[in-house]
Design a protein around this nucleic acid. Structure first.
Lengths: 236, 236
DNA sequence: AAGTGGTCTAGACCACAGA
DNA sequence: CTGTGGTCTAGACCACTTT
């Protein structure tokens, strides 16, 4: 325990390991908080912070006046959240590179204008990127961001666009809607993806929103279905 | 504050009300913890417990060295949940009909066996259905359910399979994982969907789980992309 | 009666964003 | 530098379950 990590996280990980290994079996009670305080030589508040985290993960369940019950051996499902393609791939241990093909401020095409709920004179930043896995292009991504958001055309677009939007401005993306479909590759897509025109292509259209349902980004992606599939975990 | 409820919950509700009413607008910072300590006349630990709850609800987001940002005015909307195609279509006001093409109990193909985590001798109920919108077929759906679940081959498979599993057997599906892809239609699919062989087709592979991550259903669907798209709403 | 988790206080020190 | 949230301690009292 000589790490620089916070104590309560060290305690949490230690308990988590003991649960996963079966040392603390499902159905049994954790040692009491007072006991853990002694074992780890920390204050009770620290022990409780660790247990609180484990409880919010669904691994344990404190029962007042009884003890803290171990209810699962390992982390339950994680529901899907809105992530960029990059983050999604990173989770699967896949490294991908981004190539910026074009950046421009212009009048949006009608469907983009609709999705972003823009007026007839509003302009957008359009960002065209190609993503590659191991040098092989697998996705052509066209993003539209309202000019009013204030992203400059000279930013570093190799980092996730979300982070750019959220960090540089005091905004928080709350949710997004994805529409996933399939169609034959158009000529420009076939060219960028190394496919024949008309070859089956996976398409994703995403609209991301700030609080109050204000659209902040509209993305169209055409993807090689042999190199990527869209995965989502849903609660019932 | 003369209630008997815990202090931190009273503080939490008070802040929540001020956020909902717009007194603490989205995008602004909460008063500092020290300030809240004075205003509510409680210790800092109590204030932090209140903020922690609000943060886990997604209403606020503490930013170290900056302050605690209000990111939502009220509890987030309902994200997408696991639904069958039928329910999904119903939501959009589309009426679809199901045609059962085949029902059989048999040894599962290897990939279905994997997804259902079955042993080498377990058998499954295989259900092949075609779905139609206005008489036009748009989806070919093959479902696998472990024989051990106890669904009979003579049930009414025109109702959503989930309801069959959950209602008649007192089980609760907790979550599912969808994998959405695209590929050219295979001959059997082209036949059932009225497409040419090789025409772009949307595919969905879904595994549904009971508590404890026990798989209860594996479904493969091939879909006409001109008649259906896969839509999902995700929280950030 | 003993022992548990739930709640709460009153301090303290830290690293670091922002001016 | 100043102020912020992040972390941590060492106490305390409570209500209630279990013995």
């Amino acid at each position: 325990m000589t790490s620089t990590r916070p104590l309560y996280q060290q305690v949490r990980e230690s308990i988590r390991t003991q649960i996963a290994s079966g040392l603390l079996p499902v159905g049994e009670l954790l040692p009491t908080e007072e006991e853990l305080t002694r074992v780890f030589n920390v204050s009770r508040a620290t022990v409780r912070a660790a247990i609180r985290d484990l409880a919010s993960e669904g691994l344990v369940k404190p029962r007042p006046k009884v003890g803290t019950l171990v209810i699962r051996a390992r982390a339950p499902r994680r529901e899907s959240t809105l992530r960029g393609l990059t983050e999604h791939l990173q989770e699967q241990g896949i490294v991908s590179e981004a190539v910026v093909l074009d950046v421009a401020v212009l009048a949006p095409p009608p469907h983009a204008r609709d999705h972003l709920q823009l007026g007839p004179h509003d302009r957008v930043l359009r960002l065209v990127r190609q993503r590659r896995i191991a040098g092989r292009p697998f996705a052509l991504i066209v993003s539209y961001v309202p000019e009013s958001i204030g992203i400059q055309a000279d930013e570093d677009f190799t980092v996730p666009l979300y982070q750019l939007i959220e960090r540089s401005h005091r905004m928080h993306i709350t949710h997004g809607r994805d529409v996933v479909g399939a169609r034959g590759a158009r000529p420009d897509e076939a060219d960028a993806l190394g496919l024949e025109v008309g070859a089956p292509t996976l398409t994703i259209r995403r609209t991301a929103y700030l609080d109050h349902d204000r659209p902040v980004e509209y993305v169209e992606a055409a993807i090689r279905p042999d190199l990527y599939e869209y995965t989502v975990t849903l609660p019932r």
